[in-house]
């Protein structure tokens, strides 16, 4: 007996994500889901970003890792609150884990929530968490073929960062090819090349401005 169903498999996750989104909107918190491979510089970017925003925006952070609280420890100095989610054996965050994390965050005292997803270029992409935007991150040391090899992260994100530009003189990374492939996978996607270890780097300043603009647009939405 064949039973037709035709329903979204991730319906439950997506429903929780929608309720997270509604909760964040109600508190006027803009939410970024930061995605990238292990070692691309997600935590370092957040450390630098939080330090810059210290007297400007109230930022909460939620970090996903299989194990340890090292990222939360690193970010706790600058954030209003940093919550570590240990996923155990899971390679990505899901909406329910974020829902639990939200209960540990003082949403009324935040302007921005950044969720640093588990370092992985594949698995986290397909799970809605309730974020406003997904920001994808690659770095020069990973190689110029990573966008082409991981098309889903490029198609899913609203902004792409290419980190570790300060290492460009020491590496053979075909930036033209990388830009072309990102552009073909996601026509019109904004790509910011930056070095998050240099607070005066022009790309890093672009990133900060992008975040500022996004947070302001959310604040004026409600």
């Amino acid at each position: 007996m064949k039973v037709p169903v035709v329903d979204n498999v991730l319906k439950l996750n997506d429903e929780i994500a929608q309720s997270n989104r509604a909760m964040l909107r109600a508190s006027h918190v803009f939410c970024i889901d930061l995605l990238g491979g292990p070692g691309c510089g997600k935590t370092t970017l957040l450390e630098a970003t939080l330090a810059k925003f210290a007297n400007e925006l109230r930022v909460g952070v939620c970090v996903g890792d299989l194990a340890t609280t090292r990222d939360a420890d690193r970010l706790d100095r600058h954030a209003v609150q940093a919550v570590q989610i240990n996923t155990g054996r899971s390679c990505h965050l899901d909406a329910n884990q974020v829902k639990q994390a939200l209960t540990h965050l003082p949403l009324a005292d935040l302007d921005l929530l950044i969720i640093e997803n588990v370092g992985n270029l594949i698995c986290p992409v397909g799970f809605d968490l309730g974020q406003d935007v997904k920001v994808g991150m690659f770095s020069l040391t990973e190689g110029d073929d990573k966008a082409a090899k991981h098309p889903s992260i490029v198609t899913a994100c609203d902004l792409m960062l290419l980190n570790k530009m300060d290492l460009a003189p020491h590496l053979t990374f075909d930036r033209e090819q990388f830009r072309d492939e990102v552009g073909r996978l996601h026509p019109g996607l904004r790509l910011i090349e930056l070095s998050s270890t240099d607070p005066n780097d022009a790309g890093f300043v672009h990133w900060l401005n992008w975040v500022r603009t996004a947070v302001q647009s959310q604040a004026t939405l409600v």
Partner: peptide, 9 residues
């Protein structure tokens, strides 16, 4: 970019 995931039957 189609990221649907549907249980059909």
């Amino acid at each position: 970019a189609d990221d649907e995931l549907i249980l059909e039957e």
